[in-house]
Design a protein around this nucleic acid. Structure first.
Lengths: 192, 192
DNA sequence: TCCTCCTTTTGACCATTGGTCAAATACTGT
DNA sequence: ACAGTATTTGACCAATGGTCAAAAGGAGGA
């Protein structure tokens, strides 16, 4: 049986992830330590290694969950009936940035920083999210657009997140600049 | 007297920087260790701390030098007489990306990653380079452009470097994509 | 040559990290 | 109660950045 202690104090994957996420929200991958997570959980750091092979795997568990959320958001916009294509595109871009700035450290690991430890795990998820994003764009634009151009648009949004992460604590703080940048990016995309 | 050993084996700021740069080119800030630099220099790691207050200061010394180079390149393009404004803009953007991908780890510290240790030092240089860049753009475009738009163009280029760093070892390997992205960014900038 | 003063350098030391693992502990089913 | 398995512990390892008293190396003067 995998289930154990029906009592109070159990150390579960879920519990570890929860605490790890809390630390991960505020600090970057390398600043968060297994020992500190353990301390907050009231267990030894060794115990965490029973539930997760290593730090990378623990963080990937978080990243994966959050990216499911991003994929869902993309789908929601694509399937929404209340907007025309232009509005959809605008919202898609803005949501992408919003997600990036509200999940800064997860985003960093997925799309920005190459991290030998985490890469092998995150690459697939990142690629999946990108393809959802690219497909969404294709559907929202009247004439077919070169893949290269979509890629440039993606890169452009990535740049926004890449720069503002660290300067800003949440999307709200950069909302104005984000809207400008989204319009900027749309202009290049649509007039192509 | 500051001067010492007229003999062979002296440990100088310059020598340390040179070795540090070599390591910094291949590895990221946190992967480079003072101890390894010392080992390659044939001295103890403590000795480096005599010449540099800490790791951040050592790396800033490198970063600063490289950014002087970037500023120079920007000036060269602005003052060049063989190109019209559009060509200049194209080259400015491409050179910016080129610099970013050929100085990945320096660039990362200057424009991308927020690093409490290094930030206080690098902020000024980064800001200076950005302003040179922004002014150059203003000069190359016929009608005056909103500051916000220039900022978006900068962010867009930053995104390119931000993503390709780590996937690619030098500008050459991403040249094709870079050209596409530069044209993409110019389109948004000029049609504004 | 020897002694002093100042500049460098050393290497032991500290705290902290990710990770491992044998041994101890807590549970579960019988 | 016992056996067997699922967890936890904490000592241990190899790194890291950083500090600092002590040692070494030089230059100049007597």
């Amino acid at each position: 049986m995998k289930t154990k202690k029906g009592t109070s104090q159990e150390l579960t994957r879920g519990g570890i992830i929860q605490e790890a996420r809390e630390q991960f929200v505020r600090n970057d991958y390398r600043q968060v330590s297994m020992r500190n997570i353990a301390k907050k959980l009231g267990c030894s750091h060794g115990a965490i290694y029973y539930h997760f092979k290593n730090k990378a795997e623990l963080f990937y568990a978080i990243v994966e969950k959050d990216f499911t959320e991003l994929n869902q958001e993309i789908d929601d916009i694509v399937n929404c009936d209340d907007m025309d294509d232009n509005e959809k595109l605008y919202n898609l871009f803005l949501r992408f940035i919003s997600f990036g700035l509200n999940h800064q450290n997860q985003f960093e690991i997925m799309f920005m920083i190459r991290h030998a430890e985490v890469d092998s795990l995150s690459q697939q998820s990142a690629s999946l999210s990108y393809h959802k994003f690219a497909n969404a764009i294709q559907q929202m634009v009247s004439q077919p657009i070169a893949v290269k151009i979509i890629w440039s648009a993606f890169i452009s949004l990535l740049g926004f997140v890449s720069h503002y992460r660290g300067y800003v604590n949440s999307f709200k703080e950069a909302e104005g600049a984000a809207k400008t940048h989204v319009l900027f990016t749309m202009k290049a995309l649509i007039d192509s």
